[in-house]
Design a protein around this nucleic acid. Structure first.
Lengths: 407, 407
DNA sequence: GATTATTTTCTCGACAGTCGAGAAATTTGA
DNA sequence: TCAAATTTCTCGACTGTCGAGAAAATAATC
């Protein structure tokens, strides 16, 4: 359904536009903003004075010497305009980061995670104390925290911050919104981890390719398997999604997965699955809860020396991934694939299987093999994705709610 | 990348909005347009007088008696504002329809299709003469034809009107844009047939559910298998896509498909595949080019009487469809599925397999079985989808290009 | 040191668009 | 014939963008 437009909406969108170029390029002068946005100088004046009055941006005292002429005055976000807390949940720890409005990291710590499975409720409690702790350490008042951005592996509700399914808690849903609302008035968003990786890669790619960028997928290999897809939207920036790829059906009636279903991709390509297959344990064995990476390294070493069942295990994993990717490509357009996560260290062993698995489908035979890149540093990408998404959400909210209220 | 907004853009969008409610509800009075759009009466006045001057809409002489008070004057599209030609390519015929700007069918005929496979070039030639013919018969000048909307089964380029792969011509690409450009200055669009079915169903659904509508998939069963997905977009109406579902990998190294690959869904669920499987022909047999429906009806009749291999054939087909749908659902959100096409007459035989195939995946076990509806009248939906899409494209183009030029 | 050239920022009036209020138009009912 | 009701139209206020040019501030030049 279409909806009506008004002149106020125009100002809102242009204000967000100004903030977004400021975010992308750091501090900028009046003229530069005008160049980047395509808006006239007069409009930039109007918008920036408004944003300055609302205490969202400020004039930087550091003058950029720009040859002769009136010196430029640089504008930048006010760091203390608001704060962001990033919570990254991984299988063995939870990392808390406090970030200011300009995207600068202020404080960070990690907390070990207890491995007891019973504790969805206890886990939420731990997150709440973690959040209090990072706030206390920084002496920032709670109202100044505008957004709490959480990420986890698993399946996430697309509209509300609810963890629908996760490798650790299974179908024990966690609703972060209602869990944090009593204490925090900040907005809470939750994203799948690999979605954030894809978002970060997409943002990088768009800087390089500009308007030529179309789409991209990120595949994360580890104990579990994640996939994120980012597509260029019409005008609303990029669209990202995190399908339930690890638990897509690879083979009906196949190996038993941690989720309880048979034949998921993860049941062939997850770390525990590779272990199981290398030791020729029956495929209906209940998977190990946790596999040390050292264990897999040993199998990989043997595979590299030509050991048959070890090689076979990685090959099976590759095939499952390749078949799955081909199915994903059948449902989307052709796009490059970036492989990331701890599993990238075995890419040499997985590669042949992946390519063969891809090649078994009509779409790949017709359009050719998609471009595959290996990008090992996943944690950096996750954090970068958090910042990209969270800060642009803050920009949006701040403009919609805060501009006229600032003075 | 975000892009700048201006007040002119606001007028453009609101004009398109006015045209779209006019299209949805037929002729409307000033006040009603105001109610439907949420725009103020003054704005409606401004926009409608502009559109009337540009000869896009007109006052209807038929006065709607509305009790006491000043009588309403109804506004409606001018039928002769422009015309649309709809070309529906199916496996045995090509249907041409001439439609006026108000969506009324003016003329229609079908032409048999020669089954010779060599003729991508000859086929394009046939389409060109078909288009000339429908224009000649109606005595409408060529410039008045604003859009030619074509549909076919197969894989379509998402940005240009290029048929990338089709059941009949294989990888012999057909670029309708360059084929028709010398004669026609009308815009040319090409969509996958099942995409249009999905679009039509989505539009119907949105009328019923309004803002509650989220997404929906249409599955077309026949000689080949098609899938269309429609999702509610942010504010830009609905987003539709037509994945290459029929040739998604069902089972690595499986039955030989018409496309030359092994193991496609179509190689299990297409009419030719059901035939092959019912007669226990080896799965690597080159598929029949064309299967009369009567032939399949016979198999279905036997299956309904309990004949084993016939039942098995339909069950295998259902499993392939169910597995494929579960994979699709793993990559999207949960959505209802409408099954359409000639294959719906065998739905009683397919159903169990489809449900079992769906149930083998994690996503369905977790979220439950998606709602499945059977909607047999596919041709009507295809045409309805054509009109929905084509006329809204025309509205958009007409507002962008034509409004100030009208006077 | 005064002047000129150059560059950036700011300001003003014109123009486009939406909205609310109320005037004008037109029919029904008393 | 007049009042009530309803729709359409019009006017002034407000918001927004833009182009042009004024104002500001520095570097180069004489």
């Amino acid at each position: 359904m279409l909806t009506k437009s008004s002149t106020e909406l125009v100002r809102q969108r242009n204000s967000v536009l100004v903030l977004s170029v400021l975010r992308r390029h750091g501090q900028l002068a009046h003229t530069e903003i005008s160049d980047f946005t395509g808006l006239s100088s007069a409009t930039i004046s109007a918008i920036t004075t408004e944003l300055e009055k609302a205490q969202i941006i400020e004039k930087s005292e550091q003058q950029a010497a720009s040859g002769r002429g009136r010196p430029r005055v640089l504008l930048r976000q006010r760091r203390d305009c608001g704060y962001l807390i990033v919570v990254i949940i991984s299988s063995d720890a939870v990392q808390y980061s406090l970030v200011d409005y300009a995207g600068k990291l202020i404080d960070r710590f990690s907390e070990e995670r207890s491995h007891d499975p019973s504790g969805a409720g206890r886990f939420v409690q731990a997150v709440r104390t973690g959040l209090s702790r990072i706030l206390d350490r920084s002496k920032i008042s709670q109202e100044k925290v505008l957004l709490i951005s959480i990420s986890s592996k698993g399946l996430v509700n697309s509209t509300e911050p609810v963890l629908v399914w996760s490798p650790i808690f299974g179908s024990d849903q966690i609703d972060f919104e209602s869990a944090l609302r009593p204490e925090w008035q900040a907005k809470v968003i939750l994203d799948n981890e690999t979605l954030l990786v894809a978002a970060a890669l997409g943002a990088r790619e768009e800087i390089v390719k500009g308007a030529d960028f179309r789409s991209l997928a990120a595949l994360s290999l580890g104990h579990s398997i994640g996939l994120g897809i980012v597509r260029r939207g019409n005008e609303t920036g990029q669209e990202v999604s995190a399908p339930n790829f690890g638990h897509m059906l690879h083979m009906a009636g196949g190996g038993l997965c941690r989720c309880g279903t048979r034949g998921c991709i993860e049941a062939y390509a997850g770390f525990y699955a590779i272990l199981r297959s290398a030791f020729e344990v029956p495929l209906d064995t209940i998977p190990a809860k946790f596999v040390p990476v050292a264990e897999l390294d040993k199998i990989a070493a043997r595979a590299r020396q030509g050991h048959r069942t070890s090689t076979f295990a990685f090959r099976q994993a590759g095939l499952a991934l390749g078949n799955g990717l081909s199915r994903m490509l059948s449902l989307t357009e052709r796009m490059p694939i970036s492989i990331t996560g701890p599993g990238t260290r075995y890419y040499d062993l997985l590669r042949q299987g992946i390519e063969e698995g891809l090649g078994q489908s009509h779409i790949v035979r017709m359009e050719g093999m998609p471009e595959i890149r290996v990008v090992p540093d996943e944690p950096i990408l996750v954090f970068e994705g958090h910042l990209n998404r969270a800060l642009s959400v803050i920009d949006q909210d701040i403009v919609i709610s805060g501009v006229q209220g600032g003075e």
